[in-house]
Design a protein around this nucleic acid. Structure first.
Lengths: 364, 364
DNA sequence: TTAGGCATCTAAACCGGTTTAGATACAAAT
DNA sequence: ATTTGTATCTAAACCGGTTTAGATGCCTAA
């Protein structure tokens, strides 16, 4: 009897509905399935989850359950499961803005790692709006994330849930941090320029909001001092989002601040940009102003985003192992979620200089 | 009494735990909160959700509830709520690969629209692996998504949940489709090249997997016929991911196939690439081979990705309104989720030619 | 005095799973 | 015949909310 009832339900799936607002084929629930089989929900649950308890059931019953689940196309309800397990296998990722090469690189790494472990992630971007930076991490967790990865996002206080910061602020030791040795990166770039004979070097100083700005600038100052290169304040341009139209920041910013730099009418033979995007934009501005690249102005970027090699001239830059950073961030987060590790992982990665064709010997 | 019990629970939050594996400050549940207030869970639920039933409670009680929820920092459990509501306010997005400019543009639009409506989305990428293309949409829904947006992803059969396809396959009329008029786009590009005097034009033909390939190619053929331009099969290069290392496809692909094109040693004065990325890569290959751009070879791209303007030479291209497409996709999906609309929205957008500097007059 | 009406609040079912602590039936051992 | 053991399977509590259908007490009108 039960069998018949259940079958008719299933049959209704394929029968053309006569009611207007037919809510689609009613999902088979564990209850439906159990009734159909004439078993208890518990037994069915055991088998479908391969729980140890499943071994206490007869082999025949196990087969029967598996077969029926398949036939009725049973799909467990995700929310119900999460409600007991208190685990969602969902990770939240907060990024400044999508579409930036930097972010894309890290996301690719995160994704690769997470998918391997049957996790899924969701992304949100804060567009550097303070309110969003403050609130989104919690929102992500309230939306069910088991933990959060913050990409290059400043964090004002410890979070009461597993959190990993990648490429950002290292002030908080309570959260894991995966970041690049920015000072070393700055040194690499400056040393290269110096080696090519450049002494009058212009700089893009990073945005005030960015966590990398301070370290990278400190690295520049240290190295400049060591190499006896003086930094001319007139050749230092402060990047500033508030002067840009809202939206994802791309080369436009470099173009604008490149023009600003030229407008100061101070001679320089090289620019060390804050990142690749601004470098590419600046090169465009220089070219439009009639300079030859790299003969008249050499440029060094930072990040080595996907595409830096195809800029013109191909961009010499400091490489951040972006994908690797993403992978490490994901690994660390999963570890914290699953093992509840409280140790503060502080992973510092080394940059590498990638020499292409945007730096020429300085004329003297 | 009840009050005291509840308070001590809360107090334990700040007290330093003595047990090793203290599971952190026990979340306040609706039950805790209700007990603390000496009210029923129902009453509390009404007020906190601003349900009509809340009006049946006295103003004083309402205040008391609100205040207590605030003080105890009550956060409703997302899964429990979803379990009854059968709605998650979560949308799944499936893209071919992250980090592509095309995808980034669409994602930006989707995000803007969704966040406005208090939705959150999660992303997954299929890397053109057939198994993933097939299974991921369902996986996303099983993971709790109310609906799915497919970006430029072929779809073999109708899905039993709200689905919108953007930039993709238009074969399935049961799902909503937001796509570009590819034929018109191809026409725009070819007409422009013809107008500049180009007759010997090379083409990158899109990947077999891509939904845009066929239409765009059809548009090329039509327009070429109309303009009496003959298409030399030797100047048509078929893009093919299987010849590339795995990973996100960027300009590398254009570089490789650009070299392939040159290797055929057939004269041509212009290339109409399949998209901007391949155009940028090809320009790099041409330059490395000693050609001047755009004097020796003109290039037209497709998409107008963020950054096309900063390529060298700045890329003339056919603009897809990517962000707008993303927004429309999100709007359409939400409409389907909330209104359950069954009408098949088929939205066709018009491309626009963006003339920059990668096309020169053909020498004759 | 008593029924009706209103304001306020609650009991309990429900969503769809997981899991603990038995229940039941039958065979072997005493 | 009764106990013990074992192999199968289940009842019911639970996760943390939402929602329906009353319960309760008090005031007013007949």
């Amino acid at each position: 009897m039960l069998c018949c009832v259940a079958m008719s339900r299933v049959a209704s799936k394929t029968s053309k509905g006569k009611k207007k607002a037919e809510a689609g084929p009613k999902q088979v629930s564990l209850r439906t399935l159990a009734e159909h089989l004439g078993l208890s929900r518990a037994s069915v649950s055991f088998v479908l989850n391969d729980s140890p308890m499943a071994q206490t059931l007869s082999a025949a019953t196990r087969q029967r359950i598996l077969k029926a689940a398949e036939e009725l196309n049973y799909r467990p309800n995700y929310f119900a499961r999460c409600l007991n397990k208190k685990r969602s296998y969902l990770v939240g990722v907060l990024v400044p803005e999508l579409g930036e090469g930097y972010v894309a690189g890290i996301l690719a790494g995160i994704e690769r790692e997470l998918l391997q472990d049957k996790y899924v992630y969701f992304v949100s971007s804060h567009q550097w709006v303070p309110k969003l930076i403050e609130e989104t991490p919690r929102l992500l967790v309230e939306r069910g994330a088991d933990g959060v990865i913050l990409v290059n996002t400043p964090l004002s206080h410890a979070m009461p849930f597993p959190t990993v910061n990648v490429g950002g602020h290292k002030k908080l030791t309570s959260v894991a941090n995966i970041h690049l040795d920015n000072r070393a990166g700055a040194a690499l770039a400056l040393e290269h320029l110096a080696q090519q004979g450049h002494r009058r070097i212009a700089f893009f100083r990073g945005h005030a909001e960015s966590a990398d700005t301070e370290d990278r600038w400190a690295g520049i100052c240290e190295t400049a001092a060591r190499l006896r290169i003086s930094i001319d304040p007139e050749l230092v341009v402060q990047l500033d989002k508030s002067l840009m139209p809202p939206g994802p920041s791309g080369p436009e910013e470099g173009y604008l601040f490149g023009q600003k730099l030229l407008a100061r009418r101070k001679k320089f033979s090289a620019l060390f940009a804050f990142n690749d995007m601004s470098a590419i934009g600046a090169m465009s501005a220089f070219r439009d102003a009639g300079f030859r690249l790299p003969e008249d102005i050499s440029v060094v970027g930072f990040d080595d985003v996907h595409g830096a090699a195809f800029a013109y001239p191909p961009l010499t830059t400091v490489r951040q192992p972006l994908e690797e950073m993403g992978e490490l961030a994901a690994q660390t987060l999963l570890h914290r979620i699953e093992k509840g590790a409280r140790r503060a992982d502080q992973i510092l990665l080394k940059p590498k200089l990638v020499v292409r064709k945007s730096v020429a010997l300085a004329e003297n």
